[in-house]
Nucleic acid binder design. Sequence first.
DNA 1: TAATCGAAAATTGTATACGATCTGAATGAT
DNA 2: ATCATTCAGATCGTATACAATTTTCGATTA
Lengths: 229, 229
Amino acid sequence: MPVTAVASHSTVDDIVTHLTEAVHEHRLQPGTKLREDEVCEIFGVSRTLVRQALRSLEYQGLLTIEKNRGAFVAKPSLKEAREVFQARALLEPSTARAAAERASRADIAKLERHIQEEHEAIDRGEAGLALKLSGDFHLEIARIADQDTIEQFLKQLISRSSLVIALYWRRRNALCESHAHHALLDALRNGDGETADELMKGHLLDLLSQLDLRERTEGPVSLRDALKR
Amino acid sequence: MPVTAVASHSTVDDIVTHLTEAVHEHRLQPGTKLREDEVCEIFGVSRTLVRQALRSLEYQGLLTIEKNRGAFVAKPSLKEAREVFQARALLEPSTARAAAERASRADIAKLERHIQEEHEAIDRGEAGLALKLSGDFHLEIARIADQDTIEQFLKQLISRSSLVIALYWRRRNALCESHAHHALLDALRNGDGETADELMKGHLLDLLSQLDLRERTEGPVSLRDALKR
DNA sequence: TAATCGAAAATTGTATACGATCTGAATGAT
DNA sequence: ATCATTCAGATCGTATACAATTTTCGATTA
């Protein structure tokens, strides 16, 4: 079972948090259906709260809710995948720049711990966890920049990035991006906004280049549609 | 009463749409409380659907929901106000550029009608309606650019801009920005992305300059806090 | 008079009940 | 055998009932 059982009487936030982590760590694959009753049993609450949580995750871009059919882990299309990284390319460089100009010693220390955890996860072969931590690193930079609005958008974009990676990642093995994070950290430590900006831009382009976003026959079209003439 | 009564058995989308328009047109002021029962009566549905709609508007940034206290039209702080326009400055210029490179004759015609309606609203002295239409103009550009993700973010940002304007607008009278929209339209018509980019940047700076975002004693602090020593 | 307390009313939070829609297997017709 | 149909079970959508919390307002007291 992909989602571990949880003590009874969870709050909506509990449900959201647990499901979010499960998706970010690729324990829940795109397309997976989340039946309301099932989620109810796992978290020990009524459908009312579960439905609230599922809606919340839909707004976050992690789920797709189809009327009268249920909630599914989202499957971003190629277009959406490109858009996610285009939007990140617009928002993150200048955010990294602002972060470099504001980062305190405590902020730097926190980022160092982050990278450390990332390494450990990779060493233990927990690719899913490493991916989630990598996303958290980017979010942490937005937090340091003290840009709540942009941080909120980035949260959505990084969530969707996680789904994009699940669907379109080329090499299942090494995601050797911790080097880029190290370089970014150096720039932040030196208060070098200009460099942080460019490193982030490059880092995102690098990520994008590791995805397979070439045009392809988009999913299994329904037989009826395929034969229509 | 700020919100007009509506036929029974509305859908969630109906409620969201009507309330959104009311806020965008400044018929509902920041800070106004929206009691669930009241909204139920107006739209002729049960609290279940109303609560869904209110949540949805919270995610959109139009409402703030305080636990056990209810939903209120949001009151963006000075910091949020600045962030909203900073985010728009990051997203909209490149979106306008993309729109200029893609706009069809039909798109241009639609924008022309938009501006026309804007003028008519101003002539009739309906400042609220004019403001809403002005926001729609910006959204339409994102739609033309065919950038769903950014359009979604802009929807939120423009919603919040409407609240920011309600709170921090300097001159209550003329919002003479239709000139800027005309210039933008020309650039789009000519397929001149570079110019569209710069016009949009300037337009946003211009808007920002018409707001009074100077530091001030932030709202009426509670007496107890004010006297604390 | 002003402040404090408490109980009732108002309001929101959560669970449950009921209705609508979808799904899928069994049945029957071609 | 294949396709259409029907009906029961599963699942989601909405309304309502009940619980928890906040708000209001009058009574009490310093």
